[in-house]
């Protein structure tokens, strides 16, 4: 406190008769705390990157789950279908007709992705994996139509993206 040259500032800092607002802090324990926090955060850090859910999609939770994989992401939000963020048709026709049907735009987009993958990886077997990101309130007919469209486009291995629940069994 002697380092403050101005008397009125020194007085104000000291509290002018009141209790001072400054408190001393032990550097050792503060650095210990910071180091522990850094170590904890580093241990829980995942550099693989998490695919976030699209805006407006509330995923249902599930317990018996598997780790996420890198695959094309088909999101169904409201009546819109997106493949890796690119619009790929809508579900209105399915909801209106109440019949299982192929979504042509989705089919063409997925087929294009499959052909591109085959050109980029010649001689390798196509994994045929697609991840569906569907809102919890979407009707089963839409789910089945998107599922079937993906299968016909060459993606028979379909995964549903869910929120992970802690295991109870």
């Amino acid at each position: 406190m002697h380092a403050v040259p101005l008397k009125f500032v020194q007085k104000r800092v000291q509290g002018g008769g009141h209790r001072g607002t400054n408190a001393s802090l032990s550097l050792t324990s503060m650095i210990d705390f910071l180091v522990v926090t850094v170590v904890f955060l580093l241990m829980t850090f995942d550099a693989s990157g998490e695919k976030p859910a699209n805006k407006g999609v509330t995923l249902p939770p599930a317990e018996n789950i598997q780790d996420m994989i890198d695959a094309p992401m088909v999101a169904v939000t409201g009546s819109l279908i997106l493949v890796d963020g690119t619009p790929a048709g809508n579900t209105r026709a399915i909801e209106d007709s109440k019949r299982l049907q192929r979504v042509d735009e989705l089919f063409n987009l997925l087929k294009g992705k499959r052909e591109l993958w085959k050109q980029l990886h010649p001689g390798k077997e196509f994994p045929g994996v697609v991840v569906l990101q569907i809102d919890q309130e979407v009707q089963a007919i839409v789910v089945k139509s998107v599922f079937q469209t993906a299968a016909f486009a060459g993606y028979p291995n379909v995964s549903f993206m869910v929120n992970a629940l802690p295991k109870t069994h």
Partner: peptide, 25 residues
């Protein structure tokens, strides 16, 4: 240390996404 903590907190993933598999046969 503060910058490291801030970076790790900002990039932390708090909701874990997983998947449930299905086979189209």
């Amino acid at each position: 240390l503060m910058v490291t903590i801030s970076f790790l907190l900002i990039t932390a993933v708090w909701t874990h996404m997983s998947r449930i598999n299905a086979d189209a046969q």
